[in-house]
């Protein structure tokens, strides 16, 4: 691995700070987040390393890392960070940026989120069966968890029809969130 450092070294850290509020330069790379990470055994870069990439302005390396996508958002890292850095929020910010730029280092997780939110946007509530079936189709594993599904069905735990919230505001919340999120810029934030 090779890294070339240049003048604009704080730029990416600034982007992350705008979204998460966290200053990555507070991190002294102690590794406590890596040590306790729930998915530590499955990620390519430890959270510590992702933060290091941000400190060194390595935008691509951070945004293409699978780690922020595999993050279970369990907050163990943030809870125990000796420098009180919200590590989970930094992971979340990297993921948001990666999704915005259509990077999907961990496609399945991205697809799951998309389907989940799609379901909520349509009816206001999550339709679990639709989500699972949709995911299996999109991820090319149509019979995944089929046996489990059948058992749940027998237990009466699977709703066949989507639940309706009857709330007419949902679509607006999604659309406006999308719009606002796209428009967020540093200057706008600085004003507030």
């Amino acid at each position: 691995m090779h890294i070339t450092l240049n003048l604009s070294s704080g730029a990416f850290a600034g982007e992350i700070k705008d979204i998460s509020g966290a200053n990555v330069f507070d991190c002294y790379q102690c590794g406590k987040c890596a040590a306790g990470c729930t998915v530590g055994g499955y990620i390519d870069d430890t959270p510590t390393k992702v933060i290091r990439f941000i400190q060194l302005n390595q935008r691509d390396k951070a945004l293409d890392s699978r780690t922020p996508f595999l993050c279970a958002a369990c907050n163990t890292c943030s809870e125990r960070c000796p420098m009180e850095i919200d590590v989970a929020k930094i992971m979340e910010s990297v993921r948001i940026l990666a999704l915005k730029e259509k990077r999907k280092p961990e496609r399945d997780v991205a697809v799951f989120s998309e389907l989940f939110l799609g379901s909520v946007k349509t009816t206001g509530r999550l339709f679990e069966l639709g989500l699972t079936a949709g995911f299996n189709l999109m991820s090319g594993q149509p019979v995944k968890d089929a046996e489990l599904g059948a058992r749940l069905f027998r237990k009466g735990k699977i709703a066949i029809k989507p639940a309706m919230s009857g709330n007419k505001n949902v679509k607006q919340i999604f659309d406006k969130s999308e719009a606002v999120s796209g428009s967020s810029s540093k200057e706008e934030k600085a004003e507030h």
Binding site: Q29, C30, G31, K32, C33, A34, A35, G36, C37, G40, G41, D45, T46, T48, K49
Partner: peptide, 12 residues
Amino acid sequence: VKGADTLSGSQV
């Protein structure tokens, strides 16, 4: 003991 070794980038 669940720790980290940041030099190898691993959970230990």
